[in-house]
């Protein structure tokens, strides 16, 4: 599908996510959610897990969708692939999106597929002008096929790649500017990558234009000590740590309020624990909202 301009695509986006805290939805919590209907703004799922012909997964997601807005947070578009996007996969995502009408779709500043091999991880992009140009082409094509704009997330990084010509935040901002995409700002990833790569999370926040941020992610990470080195690993397997909450408060005051998500993907605790985390995020978001309302008073 070729369009001469990507401008009309932006107009297709629906109202977007509610300005509230949401939760990453795990299949093990389906029944609990359906039984208790918790007061949560929205749920996020990885659409790749729902690319099936039928059965209980889709049926349960339909029941959840009847009561809550959804966000489709993709992990498989591989928007940084040198050999372009997988159009078959994108068409399947589009069909799924037509059925569930997610308020938002997103993926990452990363790649995960080369040729026919899909590696199931968010692999780092070299921060070069050539990689940026390739990724812009891919994002435009993906948005064309999906018929909507995307939000793109900063990944967790563990490695300086050779030949960098710009910072990750500059790469991300420029990518979004050129493609009309928006930013999904993962505050935990900023913290993790900043530690691992030796840059300042606050400087990173400074370089993000507030109007580009469509959504914020919060999650826990793991501290791994290997002999003399300490590496932070973004495993989404624990509560959001104090330093990341603090960085989120800085993000709120710096960038203003945006829909915020709690992610927890490994060692998933009971729903009540996740709801408490989401409550904390909602509380901070609410304070951020009041603060920004005060700022906008004459």
């Amino acid at each position: 599908m070729q369009r001469s301009s990507h401008v009309p695509v932006a107009a297709v986006n629906k109202a977007g996510l509610p300005l509230a805290a949401g939760l990453g939805l795990k299949p093990r919590h389906f029944q609990d959610v359906l039984d208790s209907r918790p007061a949560i703004g929205w749920f996020e799922v990885h659409p790749e897990n729902y690319l099936v012909a039928g059965g209980p997964l889709l049926a349960q997601l339909e029941r959840i969708r009847a009561d809550y807005p959804l966000s489709f947070h993709s992990v498989g578009m591989s928007l940084g692939s040198a050999d372009g996007v997988d159009t078959v996969h994108l068409r399947r995502l589009r069909a799924l999106a037509e059925r569930f009408e997610p308020a938002q779709m997103s993926d990452h500043l990363s790649w995960s597929r080369h040729g026919q091999r899909y590696l199931n991880d968010l692999l780092p992009m070299p921060l070069t002008t050539a990689a940026l140009a390739q990724m812009c082409r891919n994002v435009m094509q993906a948005q064309d096929i999906l018929g909507r704009t995307l939000a793109l997330e900063n990944p967790s990084s563990y490695l300086h790649l050779p030949g960098a010509q710009m910072s990750e935040s500059d790469f991300l901002v420029e990518l979004c500017r050129r493609t009309d995409a928006r930013i999904l700002l993962d505050v935990n990833n900023i913290y993790v990558s900043g530690h691992n790569l030796g840059w300042s999370p606050l400087d990173y926040l400074q370089s993000i234009p507030p109007n580009l941020v469509a959504e914020v992610h919060l999650a826990g990470h793991k501290v791994e000590v290997v002999e003399q080195d300490t590496l932070l690993i973004d495993d989404h397997g624990s509560p959001v740590c104090a330093a990341v909450w603090q960085l989120y408060e800085s993000a709120l005051s710096q960038l203003g309020p945006a829909p915020v998500l709690i992610e927890w993907d490994t060692d998933v605790p009971p729903l009540s624990v996740l709801l408490r985390e989401a409550d904390t995020a909602q509380h901070l978001l609410q304070s951020g909202l009041s603060a920004s309302a005060r700022r906008s008073l004459p």
Binding site: L119, D121, S157, Y158, V226, L231
Partner: peptide, 22 residues
């Protein structure tokens, strides 16, 4: 050498992630 060691560690995180998740 310290930077090289950290780079090697970082790279292996990705390999672990790929193998572990699959």
């Amino acid at each position: 050498p310290a930077a090289a060691r950290r780079q090697g560690l970082g790279l292996r995180v990705y390999r672990n992630n790929v193998l572990y998740s699959l």
